[in-house]
């Protein structure tokens, strides 16, 4: 077992445990903080896949910006305590958990763990740490994928205007 494998098991377990805590915890503030830990461990998993740039973006945008937004709304609406309506009726919870466990079990039985690539992409020969570098992603983003990139910029503008319009107090 190499260090990368060890990192996978550690951060993978951490991500699963904290994600379960997010959906089972009744205190929204605790949920947000567990979700931050889950996002950090996913960033670490990105590093084990040699995509350092995406790991940095994950920490900056997800663990930084988005989770601060969540925490801000939780505190703005004063939802720091458990609410009476928090969880659905018990039969529904049991059914949902059972279905989820069955789905994961099915994938386990189906041999997802042994999956190996059968096709090769256009950048197949490139060394792993070059593949996920800022340079490679940047040049792909500004040449081949420039249209989706511009569309994303437009989407962010629209979302910004939309959020302001929706949350504005009506007069």
């Amino acid at each position: 077992m190499t260090g990368v494998d060890l990192a996978f098991w550690f951060f993978g377990t951490l991500a699963v445990v904290t994600s379960v805590l997010v959906i089972t915890n009744r205190n929204p503030v605790a949920s947000v903080l567990f979700l931050v830990i889950a996002f950090f461990s996913l960033a670490a998993l990105f590093v084990t896949l040699h995509s350092h740039f995406l790991a940095a973006i994950q920490v900056l945008v997800y663990a930084g910006a988005i989770m601060v937004l969540f925490l801000f709304v939780v505190m703005l609406l004063n939802l720091g305590q458990p609410q009476w309506f928090d969880v659905q009726a018990r039969p529904l919870v049991i059914v949902a958990a059972a279905l989820g466990a069955a789905f994961v079990g099915l994938l386990w039985k189906g041999g997802l763990l042994e999956w190996t690539p059968t096709v090769t992409g256009p950048a197949a020969g490139v060394p792993e740490d070059v593949l996920g570098s800022v340079e490679a992603i940047g040049s792909a983003l500004y040449t081949v994928y420039y249209l989706p990139f511009i569309a994303t910029a437009l989407l962010l503008l629209i979302a910004m205007v939309g959020a302001v319009v929706i949350a504005r107090r009506e007069r």
Binding site: F53, L54, I57, V119, G121, A123, A124, I137, A140
Partner: peptide, 15 residues
């Protein structure tokens, strides 16, 4: 993306 060697996956994650 890392397994088959295709940059499209990384770009997709960014989007």
């Amino acid at each position: 993306a890392a397994a088959i060697g295709d940059l499209a996956g990384f770009v997709m994650v960014l989007l």
